Amino acid sequence: MKIGILGAGGMADALGTQWIRAGHEVTVSGRDPERARARAESMNAQVGRPGARSGSWAEAAASGEVVMVGVREAGLDDVLAAAGPALRGKPIIDVTNGAAPDRYDVTRPLARRIADLTGGHVVKAFNLCHVDVWRMTPPVFGGRPLAVPLCGDDARALDLVRGLVRDLGCTPLDGGGLDRAVQLEATAAFMIGLWFGGADAQAILPPLASSGAHEPA
């Protein structure tokens, strides 16, 4: 599958390189064309074969069967405008988080903003972990593969992203519709705040067996 990536930072490197290893082709874009080109070359070097190239925002958007948005919140609107109409109706993976966890605004969810600005089928995913987690092959903790919640409304987009989650060796989880992405973003803001404070945020949740009685899924 061809994947366009808006952004040439750590998330582009970590996720994009893993997807190249899984056999996909990636187009990386960024504000600095030379940095984007260097990022693509670095990804190819890590994998040991060509699978990444660089391009403009619009070229990355047009090239991908699915497009990942991995840019900072401050530049989000400008980047999506530069990516252009190719994003309309396309599956879009939103991996973004707010600029600062203590200032996350639940009235302005990023996933909904991306959907409104692009007309694409947005799936919120991959925003709960530090970039180094996505460099693990695979991300396994205590013998248990990492689970990745997905929030989105479009069945085809969700199916494509589930496959990309599995390509990392992770387990996709149904997190509900795109309206629930705000909860996923708020969860990230809360957990990141705990991690920044030196707390083991994972320790705040009990295992499933101790979470009470539930109806079968």
Rank of each mutant, 00 (worst) to 15 (best):
P109G: 02
G120D: 05
G75S: 11
D105L: 10
V79T: 11
G75K: 04
V140T: 15
G84I: 07
N97E: 06
P91C: 08
V122G: 05
A100V: 05
P139W: 05
V106D: 09
R88S: 15
E73G: 00
G84W: 06
V95R: 01
L76H: 03
D78W: 08
A86P: 13
V122A: 04
A83Q: 07
T107R: 14
H130N: 10
A81E: 15
A111W: 04
D94R: 03
A99L: 14
D94E: 12
T137A: 15
I114W: 02
G119E: 09
G75Y: 12
M68R: 02
L110F: 02
E73V: 03
D132W: 00
G120T: 05
V95E: 04
G75C: 09
V69G: 01
L128V: 05
T118D: 07
A74V: 14
A115P: 04
H121S: 09
V131I: 14
K90A: 08
R112W: 10
R108H: 15
A86I: 05
G98A: 15
R112K: 13
V123D: 08
D78K: 12
L80S: 08
P85E: 12
G70K: 00
G84R: 07
R88D: 12
I92F: 05
V140N: 11
D102A: 13
